[in-house]
């Protein structure tokens, strides 16, 4: 079982008008994200975002055990949102999806719009929204940060699957009622979301221990003084 299977839409799952509609929505959002990402990274935009995108690409190839015989990999929406912010994050995930579709025949060409909307827009922004809502716990303690990352990744995964359900309801290839698809996708992604949440939390925790200044969620917190306070924590000198 790969988690990848469930979320990456292929051609033919939604009809042509829905594909085109979400393609247009995706183009609008990504164009907007490109403008906003500049503000987050200034002239370093391209090299930094390029490397972070390469990181997302590599992360999706790292398999995690779930149970013996079953493994999955990170989707990374909430993770990049927390680490580099939602705008750069959306760009990174979008580029990974485009490259996978064009170079690796992974995810259909006409499904690119729906995939980008689900994973790069909904997944990233839902994760970011939850993370910002819980930020006051995240800046308070390491436990708060881990819990915030977990909830953000879980919510991002489940809401991204709701995007799939909405697209299916709008222009699905029928054959199953929206209720069935809802139960199937949301149930499956609630499970996947737990894995995504655990891995995201530990990853964010590891980055925060070594370079808390690299965690966008903490860096952009309203009271930056509180960020650098986790006294007594080993600052990862061995890394």
């Amino acid at each position: 079982m790969s988690r990848h299977v469930a979320m990456h839409m292929s051609d033919g799952i939604v009809n042509a008008p829905t594909s085109l509609l979400f393609g247009a929505v995706a183009i609008l959002f990504v164009g907007w994200a490109a403008v906003r990402a500049r503000a987050d990274l200034d002239d370093r935009t391209a090299p930094m975002a390029g490397l972070v995108t390469a990181f997302v690409f590599a992360v999706q190839m790292i398999n995690f055990p779930i149970l013996p015989g079953a493994s999955g990999h990170l989707l990374g929406g909430a993770l990049v949102a927390i680490l580099v912010g939602p705008w750069v994050g959306t760009l990174c995930i979008t580029i990974v999806l485009v490259v996978q579709s064009l170079l690796f025949a992974d995810g259909g060409l006409t499904a690119l719009g729906t995939n980008v909307v689900n994973m790069a827009v909904i997944g990233v922004f839902a994760g970011w929204g939850v993370a910002v809502a819980l930020r006051r716990f995240a800046v308070r303690s390491r436990g708060g940060l881990l819990a915030t990352a977990f909830v953000a990744a879980f919510a991002g995964t489940v809401l991204a699957s709701l995007g799939f359900v909405a697209q299916y309801a709008l222009g699905g290839a029928a054959g199953a009622t929206t209720g069935t698809v809802f139960a199937l996708m949301v149930g499956l992604h609630a499970l996947i979301g737990i894995g995504e949440g655990v891995i995201t939390a530990v990853t964010v925790g590891a980055v925060a221990a070594v370079r808390p200044d690299l965690v966008h969620l903490l860096r952009t917190a309203p009271r930056p003084a509180a960020v650098t306070q986790p006294a007594g924590r080993g600052d990862g000198s061995g890394a």
Partner: peptide, 15 residues
């Protein structure tokens, strides 16, 4: 997962 954390730090610093 901690490996992924250091992979991010290394990617960012490489960037």
């Amino acid at each position: 997962a901690r490996g992924i954390g250091s992979l991010f730090v290394r990617s960012y610093e490489r960037g």
